[in-house]
Amino acid sequence: MTRLARAETPPIDPIAPALTAGGPILVDLSQPRPAGRARSHVTTVSRLLSRALVPAVLLGAWQAVVDLGLVSPETLPSPTQIGAAYGELIRTGELQSAIPTSLARALVGLLLGATTGLGLGLFAGLWRVGEELFDAPLQMLRTIPFIAMIPLFIIWFGIGEEAKIALIFGATIFPVYLNTYAGVRGVDQKLIEAAKVFGLSHRLIAVRVIIPTALPSILVGLRYAAGVSLLALVAAEQINARAGIGYILISANQNQRTDIIIAGIIIYALLGIVIDLIMRVVERLALPWRPSLVLA
């Protein structure tokens, strides 16, 4: 009796029937592969290291230049001397009291300026009468450097906090206004025509179509204004400051403490980075639908 050998059944390919039938292929992409997650972690770590590489090299070169005597410590203190200056400011409590004071000035001026710029930008962008009333004067005023307004603000508001906040307020209006106005006027007219076809009123078109479409441009203006507020803060705190980072810089200048001057400048830079990161988070929360496009 001859035994018939059993033929092995080939594995069934679930994609083969779809390829044979010419139908669509559905691939489950809901669960990422472990290798993909590991690769993502490696990429994140490498990006962080690459970002920290250049600052670390610059700090090392800075320290070496001072240690080798190529630059006088009185002219350019080393990073270790600046670190000691930070320790001195922390021990005396000056740094802890200066940062909240300066941040309060910048945030109050930014809030007032951004609110005014947003309102004027929407008014000029949505209504022709607003453009005729405000666009030309604001375009002329924005060409005036805000530092040139310091003597006038001192005459108007004195040398107290009002002059400092007014300077920051005047500097932050224009970035928000320009980006809001450009964003509103840049809305595709086909979207507005489609909204009219569906019977939306002018108010609903503005609220549901124009403002959401212009939101990316508005947020860019807010982000730019946040940086400008710190630039204006540096100038504002030179007006008879009795507290804040500017007061530390003025006192250090009088005592010829270059290390504390550079430490104060670095604080301004760090505040700028923190504010920019906050604005990026706000952009991601407000615009979750916008993709992050990079070439490589």
Score class of each variant (00 low, 15 high):
R47G: 12
V42R: 14
Q31M: 02
S30F: 06
A21R: 01
R47D: 06
S30G: 06
S46W: 09
S46H: 12
T43H: 09
V42N: 07
T20H: 09
H41G: 08
A35L: 11
R39A: 13
Q31G: 03
T43C: 02
L49K: 00
T44N: 09
L29E: 09
S50R: 06
T20R: 14
T43E: 14
V45N: 03
L49W: 01
G36P: 00
P24T: 10
S30N: 06
V27G: 00
Q31E: 11
P32A: 13
D28S: 00
S46N: 11
S46C: 10
D28E: 01
P24G: 06
A38C: 02
R39M: 13
A38G: 09
L19P: 02
T20S: 12
G36Q: 13
A38W: 09
R33E: 14
H41E: 11
L49Y: 02
G23V: 07
V42F: 15
V45G: 09
G22T: 04
H41R: 12
I25V: 15
L26Y: 03
P32Q: 09
L49H: 01
L19Q: 06
P24K: 07
S46D: 11
R47N: 07
H41Y: 15
L19D: 03
T20F: 11
I25A: 05
S50V: 07
S40N: 12
R37G: 03
S30H: 11
T20I: 13
R33C: 02
R47F: 09
S46V: 10
T43V: 06
R33Y: 05
H41M: 10
V27I: 14
R33G: 06
H41I: 14
A35P: 01
P24H: 05
R33M: 10
R33L: 13
A38S: 09
A21Q: 08
I25S: 02
R47V: 04
P34A: 12
G23E: 10
A21F: 03
S46Q: 12
R33H: 14
P34Q: 09
G23Q: 07
V42P: 08
R47A: 12
L49F: 01
G23F: 01
R37E: 15
R39V: 02
G22S: 05
G36V: 03
A35F: 08
G36D: 15
Q31H: 06
S50L: 14
P24Q: 05
V42Q: 13
A38D: 04
S40F: 12
